[in-house]
Nucleic acid binder design. Sequence first.
DNA 1: CAGCACTGGGTGACGCGTCAACCAGCGCCC
DNA 2: GGGCGCTGGTTGACGCGTCACCCAGTGCTG
Lengths: 170, 170
Amino acid sequence: MTEVSQFTDAEWDVWRSFTTMRRQLDHALEKQLQHDAGISRPDFEVLLAVFDARERQLRSGELAEILGWEKSRVSHQTTRMARRGLVTRRDCDSDGRGTWIGLTPDGMRAVLGSMRDHAATIRRYFFDVLSADELEAVRSTSHRVLDAIDPPVCRRDNDNDNDNDNEESA
Amino acid sequence: MTEVSQFTDAEWDVWRSFTTMRRQLDHALEKQLQHDAGISRPDFEVLLAVFDARERQLRSGELAEILGWEKSRVSHQTTRMARRGLVTRRDCDSDGRGTWIGLTPDGMRAVLGSMRDHAATIRRYFFDVLSADELEAVRSTSHRVLDAIDPPVCRRDNDNDNDNDNEESA
DNA sequence: CAGCACTGGGTGACGCGTCAACCAGCGCCC
DNA sequence: GGGCGCTGGTTGACGCGTCACCCAGTGCTG
């Protein structure tokens, strides 16, 4: 990644800082969850989504939509989690194709035990160390980058039907 | 991730923007490489590191150090890449334990063909859409977050023996 | 030289994630 | 009611990444 990259040293420095930070932050959050509750980040996301749902259960498809995951990913993940005793999976009565995902006692314990710690960790490594201005900068740069990527790549938030015209300047 | 998260709406907005941006940016870069050269990002990193090395070859351990990867990861990755015909692996003469990683013609073609496009993509989605001030903000916030994480978590860049002082300002 | 620790690297199992293919139930429409 | 497309979801293969463990060559020390 040196002579070849056609970036200036300053650009390269920014890019490296940024990617390193992402990696370390992910790693730190993962480690905290693993340490505090013995679960992974995907585990946590699933547990929290189900926990937040009325009746503490969700159809597989709803879960996919909430998390922004593919259906197959949800299937794989919940299958693994069921094997590890974190969630239950049972067939839906009213629709023979459906699957309800619920929490086991272990899953409930895990999510309750890790929520506060996880939020605290995010706060410690992110919100606490950044000023209001910096947070605003993060927000705006994120949106800028997203806007640049947006047309060609996936659409998730406002999923309207057209997805191939655009370029509303950048 | 709603009532439960003990974040303000504004905080939540920042965090979501940030994580979404990371995901989409990674995804876009991955897609570009796959499209332009049929390789993944890890593939690209390995190829570029080897390409940059004198003699166009590296010992497995050097590669690990350059990329900041674990040795086992390098082993798995280069094994897969060798299977796909991107790199060569041959035993080292002077040290019976060593392995040299080199480029195949296909690997050379892939790295040559994707370098410019990859850099251009990073520029398009990142450097081009951010002002100098915003880039500086990215750099400084990245360092701030890294500094917050740093002590407890891994040390990678300046790997001198002491690993808990530093702070060369941000 | 024998022993022994260290070092370079590989392996296997597993979790995460995607893609493509598949399958069954459901709804619709003739 | 018999076909037909759609929808909800699963499966299998594969790549990525980590951890724990293993193995052999190296080199040092007695």
